[in-house]
Write a protein that binds this DNA or RNA. Structure first.
Length: 293
DNA sequence: TGCCAGGGCTGGG
DNA sequence: CCCAGCCATGGC
């Protein structure tokens, strides 16, 4: 690229920044004065939606912006993904509601730790817990004047040195021992998160599920949001309820048949389809017929 | 106020 | 395999 700069325009079509950053895959973004502010790795970033792309600003200069285009997946041909979705009414409605929603490519440790904190929590609460955790354990990073202290997501090594009480003080309740034990396993090398990228999805999933506080749902979130295994299909209470009501309106399938359905029906980019469904049912005004419980 | 949240784990049928 | 109960906390 050119000389190091603190601003960059990312040309991209079919990109809905708001849907992408609020759809429950990342927890460090906030909307202020018409722009999205967040932290990617050790960089503070502000993003602004444009008709033909995204304006990005940072506090520290960058010579290359691949760290950001990788994270945003702005070069992905979204149309080729959407064409693999099943042609049914729920999927059509979901895509129509938020076409331009993308899956991010997040750093595995941050994604794993965040989703360990997600269990039985609303998205706003996860954001609060993550914010506390970052402010107490994350490395300070450069931000524009007037923004106060901004912190990176804490490393596994740093959290491994924390006490359970310190973690509980971040309002994470019973999730604290799980986060702590997982941080220790990652920090001491018992689990190498980087090595999962090259392994088959099923093997990577098994390795994640072996961690305390990580079941199938959270493992699938990490496979999908950090590693880009686009067939991974997390089923939370919203998605579960939506699928029951949209695809099995008469009687509930057995858990086994339900599992087989979500693993086969939605195609090679099932995880992507799942995220459109999730965002659709969670944000639509008229939730009649599709509300959890 | 009570219900519920991007669940996982354990212990019973 | 399936299910109920429990875990902690706060938004709505």
């Amino acid at each position: 690229m050119h000389a190091a700069a603190t601003a960059c325009f990312i040309a991209t079509r079919d990109y809905d920044l708001g849907a992408t950053l609020t759809c429950g895959q990342a927890f460090r973004w906030s909307f202020r004065d018409g722009a999205w502010e967040g932290v990617v790795g050790s960089r503070w970033v502000r993003l602004r939606q444009r008709a033909d792309g995204i304006d990005a600003e940072t506090a520290a200069p960058s010579a290359s912006w691949s760290w950001l285009t990788d994270y945003l997946q702005s070069e992905l041909d979204l149309g080729s993904i959407l064409r693999t979705f099943p042609e049914d009414e729920p999927m059509r409605a979901s895509v129509a509601a938020c076409r331009g929603l993308r899956l991010l490519r997040q750093e595995p440790w941050e994604c794993l730790a965040s989703f360990i904190l997600s269990s039985t929590k609303q998205i706003v609460q996860i954001e609060q817990i993550v914010a506390l955790l970052c402010s107490r354990f994350g490395e300070p990073i450069e931000a524009p004047a007037g923004f106060g202290l901004v912190h990176a997501f804490p490393t596994a090594a740093r959290l491994a040195m924390a006490s359970e009480a310190e973690l509980r003080a971040c309002k994470m309740g019973f999730r604290a021992p799980n986060l702590l034990a997982t941080a220790r396993r990652v920090a001491n090398g018992e689990l190498d998160l980087r090595s999962l990228q090259a392994r088959p999805a099923a093997e990577a999933r098994d390795a994640l599920v072996a961690l305390p506080g990580v079941g199938e749902k959270i493992a699938n979130c990490v496979l999908l949001f950090a590693y880009g295994f686009q067939e991974a299909f997390p089923v939370d209470v919203w998605v579960g309820k939506a699928i029951h009501q949209l695809y099995f309106p008469k009687r509930r399938p057995t858990p086994q048949r339900f599992k087989r359905f979500v693993e086969t029906y939605f195609g090679p980019n099932a995880g992507y389809a799942q995220q459109y469904l999730f965002h659709f049912v969670r944000t639509r005004r008229d939730k009649v017929g599709v509300t959890p419980k």
